[in-house]
Simulated assay, not measured.
Amino acid sequence: MTGPGGTDPQDGVGRQLEAKILELLAARASTSTICPSDAARAVGGDEWRHLMEPARKAARRLVDAGKVHITQGGSVVDPVTAKGPIRIRKAP
């Protein structure tokens, strides 16, 4: 079964991105945010750009699981309707 946007949430890269997002957030203050590119770079190394959309999808799955929020301009937004740059922060 595929997840939102056609990505299988059980694929290796998707799991790696989800884990990396949570790891990066755990290393920061509870109010801090990360960019999906932080996780994409950590997982993909020099070849990270193709992981941007998978990183955004991984963040959406983590929102669905209640683990993170997606923000724009400091406000929590619906990940389905968010357009443009997003940030990810731990859910309280």
Rank of each mutant, 00 (worst) to 15 (best):
T71H: 08
S37Y: 04
R49H: 09
P9A: 01
E23Q: 13
E53T: 06
H50S: 07
D78F: 00
C35N: 08
R87E: 07
R28K: 15
E47T: 07
Q72E: 14
V13C: 10
I70W: 11
T81R: 13
H69K: 10
A40C: 09
V76D: 13
R41D: 00
A26C: 10
A42N: 12
W48V: 02
I88Q: 01
S37F: 00
H50K: 09
E47Y: 04
V77L: 09
G84E: 11
R60W: 12
A59M: 12
E18W: 06
T31Y: 10
K67Q: 15
P54H: 01
T2N: 09
H69M: 03
R89C: 15
A19C: 00
S75Y: 12
Q16L: 08
K20C: 13
V77Y: 05
G66N: 02
R49V: 11
G5N: 05
H50Y: 11
L24N: 05
G6N: 12
G6L: 02
H50P: 10
V13T: 11
R28F: 02
D78A: 10
G84Q: 07
R89S: 11
L51M: 12
Q72V: 07
Q72S: 08
A82N: 09
V13R: 09
S75H: 13
L62V: 07
S37T: 09
G14N: 12
L25N: 04
A91Q: 04
M52C: 00
V76A: 10
G66E: 07
R89N: 08
G74L: 07
T7C: 03
E18I: 00
D64Q: 14
Q16I: 00
T33E: 10
V76T: 08
Q16N: 13
R49A: 12
A82C: 13
H50V: 03
T81W: 13
R15I: 09
K83D: 13
V76H: 03
G84I: 11
Q10D: 15
K67L: 14
A27T: 03
P36A: 04
D64M: 15
M1V: 08
I70F: 02
I88N: 01
L24K: 13
G5F: 07
A40Y: 04
L17S: 05
Q72T: 06
A29I: 04
A19Y: 11
R49G: 01
R41G: 14
R41W: 00
I34H: 13
I70T: 11
A19W: 06
V43H: 05
H50D: 11
G66F: 06
E53S: 04
D64V: 14
I88D: 01
G44E: 03
D8F: 06
A82Q: 04
A65V: 13
G84N: 06
E18L: 06
H69G: 06
Q16M: 15
R87L: 10
R49L: 10
S30R: 09
L24Y: 05
I70Q: 14
P79V: 04
G14M: 15
